[in-house]
């Protein structure tokens, strides 16, 4: 998808993502209790609920403003590492959204890499976001990007975590999908449902 999404589309995207996070809140927290500090579902739910409230209360005027508001709310309200990471994703997207969704997501991904310093295979959200960006950059559809993110999430199951709280667990972190990669797969699912 190379077109620039509208403010309404992006609002629908973050709203749908908030719904998916709410729906899967317990699943995300259960994954995080297996390999982390058991707060990813509740943290992301708190953050995305605050995002929806913020953009409903004072609807941003343009796509960049919507993405900036989303990112600024997440860095303040999530609480865990996913706050600065998802927040940076949206803040960097704001700076590139005029070029289209795919370049914006790529810019956001680069922000996540810079902020978290994770590499592919570290069992993080990078493992879902990177493949989705690659699909979009190659001209693929949002549905294909969402599938790539889901495949990336599934591929984190056998990995040993090398970043974040899960890295304290070493080998014991293998055998579960990464919570951040899982929420990222929902982010791309929401994009496929609302931006196509």
């Amino acid at each position: 998808m190379s077109d620039t999404p509208t403010t309404e589309q992006l609002t629908a995207w973050v709203t749908r993502f908030a719904e998916l996070v709410r729906e899967h809140r317990d699943e995300l927290t259960a994954l995080d209790s297996a390999i982390g500090d058991a707060d990813h579902g509740s943290n992301m739910d708190r953050g995305m609920t605050a995002v929806v409230a913020a953009v409903t209360e004072a609807p941003p005027a343009d796509p960049a403003a919507l993405l900036k508001k989303t990112g600024a709310t997440l860095v303040s309200k999530v609480g865990g590492a996913s706050g600065p990471l998802y927040g940076t994703l949206f803040l960097r997207m704001a700076g590139a959204v005029e070029e289209g969704f795919a370049p914006a997501l790529r810019a956001g991904f680069e922000g996540v890499l810079a902020r978290g310093k994770a590499e592919p295979g570290d069992k993080t959200m990078v493992d879902a976001l990177g493949p989705a960006c690659d699909v979009l950059d190659a001209g693929g559809s949002l549905a294909e990007a969402a599938q790539a993110a889901a495949d990336g999430r599934d591929a984190t199951v056998p990995l040993v975590a090398r970043k974040g709280r899960a890295s304290y667990l070493g080998e014991r972190s293998a055998g579960h999908a990464d919570p951040g990669a899982t929420s990222t797969a929902y982010l791309l699912q929401a994009a496929a449902e609302t931006l196509s």
Binding site: D39, N43, R46, A72, V75, S76, K77, V78, G79, G80, G83, P84, G87
Partner: peptide, 10 residues
């Protein structure tokens, strides 16, 4: 809300 976490704005 009193829960554990960090806030970049704060």
């Amino acid at each position: 809300d009193g829960s554990l976490g960090t806030d970049a704005v704060a």
